[in-house]
Design a protein around this nucleic acid. Structure first.
Lengths: 155, 155
DNA sequence: GTCCGTGCAAAACGTTTGCAGTCCG
DNA sequence: CGGACTGCAAACGTTTTGCACGGAC
């Protein structure tokens, strides 16, 4: 027996562990507030803006301050729980859960939905291109803005 | 006889024309202030942040308001004079002159310099990838963050 | 004369910081 | 106890807006 809810719980345990490890390694303290924020991140949606996360958090756990959320985001990034993701067409930065497998993004210009893709050919090619220019590629952001072929979305 | 200065002048004329056409087509009015801003854009550096442009503008043409600059940037974008370019590793958005040929960017993680590249294979490939996912690629942002191989930079 | 364009100041926006107090180990 | 963590409010830097005036056609 398994399903979406079970998967989320599993994921939460995994991310919780990641965070715990980081906290231990960096000699930080554990905190319930930080755990609550992590829950909100894992349990709701994968691509999120800081401000939206705060709104959701406010509903699930009222009383947690905005500053605390913002102060913890870098901790989550450093611990490998989340990472900075794509930007939508209006320039809003999104975070996303950090699944160890790298991927890039397609952002729908019609509804703003964010999809993922991974293409080994492109991955390799950009390294080669950088190399030719005497650069050593470290990371990249590759976002394709596109219209969905089904025009039925949002209707 | 030609050189960098002549090239810039030529470019300025071209961009000036683009702007003029747009202004005419949209039944806007011409304005000296807008021309001055365009000059500052064309004559100094190709990748710039809005705020830096304002500083430069303040020196070349004191008295032009910050708001006017910000209000005109979208006009320049719409007229095809500039376009939004890459983001550096700190998240600052850069604009750049819109040369009709598309290119992507390599941002140096050591000194922040922005370089351009164009690779037809990657261009084509991402369209194919989008297509497979039933999307019609419209634009994209592809920024590779890299260390320069020569470690001599900035010394 | 009618909009468009402008400068200024004030507001908005998302994020960061200072501070005084609390919690963890 | 000391340092990490927190909420609040105030500050921040960039960008946008409201308003009254000046300029283009």
């Amino acid at each position: 027996l398994h399903g979406p809810a079970q998967d989320k719980k599993k994921l939460l345990r995994k991310m919780s562990q990641k965070l715990e490890d980081f906290v231990a390694q960096k000699k930080l303290n554990r905190s319930d507030v930080r755990e609550s924020i992590l829950e909100s991140i894992v349990l709701e949606g994968s691509h999120f803006r800081a401000q939206d996360l705060f709104e959701r958090l406010k509903k699930r756990k009222p009383g947690i301050g905005r500053a605390t959320l913002y102060r913890n985001l870098p901790v989550f990034v450093a611990s490998g729980v989340i990472k900075e993701g794509p930007e939508d067409s209006e320039g809003n930065t999104f975070y996303e859960l950090s699944d160890d497998e790298h991927h890039d993004h397609i952002v729908c210009l019609d509804c703003g939905a964010i999809y993922e893709f991974h293409d080994p050919f492109i991955e390799k090619r950009q390294e080669v291109v950088a190399d030719k220019m005497r650069f050593q590629a470290q990371t990249h952001k590759h976002v394709v803005y596109a219209h969905c072929t089904y025009k039925t979305k949002g209707l």
